[in-house]
């Protein structure tokens, strides 16, 4: 076998191994990044957190005259955004049956209660018209108590053939954990 032929065979062998290896490596890297983007805590650095404010019909501050200390605009926006997305996470958990996203917006006793409620994909959950009254904000703006008065929500299940619409009042305690507001305690008064 000539030297050139040996080089050519080595080149072809390297090509045959190298191309699939590169392809597999690229696909693995791609799925690794995709896993972070889809499965990671939305507040994590891998996903980032964009401040998205709900529309007035979805949620709106009615009063921000709080005991403790007065909020600034930044705190109000972060609070209402996190609160809205807390309910959205619950709605998604009902829609998909996957409650992995709940700890991003719910914490402590509230998270335990929401998870114990067992959102399942057999029901859909829709909510809107959150009218918020800030009652207390701690001096360092890390603990807040607010009322949500007369919000509407709807459970429906095609499988079970039920659908009911309710309005409710809620009192909630939110805490700022690692730069992200989470619902820590709640009490809900359902109304006829």
């Amino acid at each position: 076998m000539s030297k050139n032929r040996a080089k050519f065979i080595l080149f072809i062998t390297a090509l045959l191994i190298g191309i699939p290896a590169s392809l597999i490596g690229f696909l693995m890297l791609n799925s690794f990044i995709a896993a972070f983007n889809s499965g990671a805590d939305p507040a994590s650095i891998f996903r980032g957190h964009r401040l998205i404010l709900p529309t007035e019909d979805q949620a709106q501050w009615m009063s921000t005259d709080a005991a403790g200390t007065q909020p600034n605009q930044n705190t109000l926006e972060n609070l209402i955004s996190a609160y809205w997305f807390g309910w959205e996470a619950l709605a998604r958990a009902y829609q998909t049956g996957d409650s992995a996203n709940l700890p991003t917006y719910w914490a402590g006793a509230a998270l335990d209660q929401v998870q114990a409620a067992g959102p399942s994909s057999s029901m859909s959950f829709v909510h809107n018209r959150h009218r918020l009254y800030l009652r207390f904000l701690s001096e360092d703006m890390t603990v807040a108590v607010m009322d949500d008065v007369g919000f509407h929500f709807q459970y429906s299940s095609i499988q079970q053939g039920v659908e009911f619409t309710l309005s409710a009042n809620a009192t909630l305690v939110l805490t700022l954990d690692n730069g992200f507001w989470r619902i820590r305690e709640y009490t809900i008064d359902l109304m006829r």
């Binding site: 209660q113 114990a116 409620a117 067992g118 009911f164 709640y186 809900i188």
Partner: peptide
């Protein structure tokens, strides 16, 4: 019958 207790519901 549906019992709604907080955010939990029982049928």
């Amino acid at each position: 019958i549906v019992l709604l207790n907080g955010l939990s519901q029982t049928m």
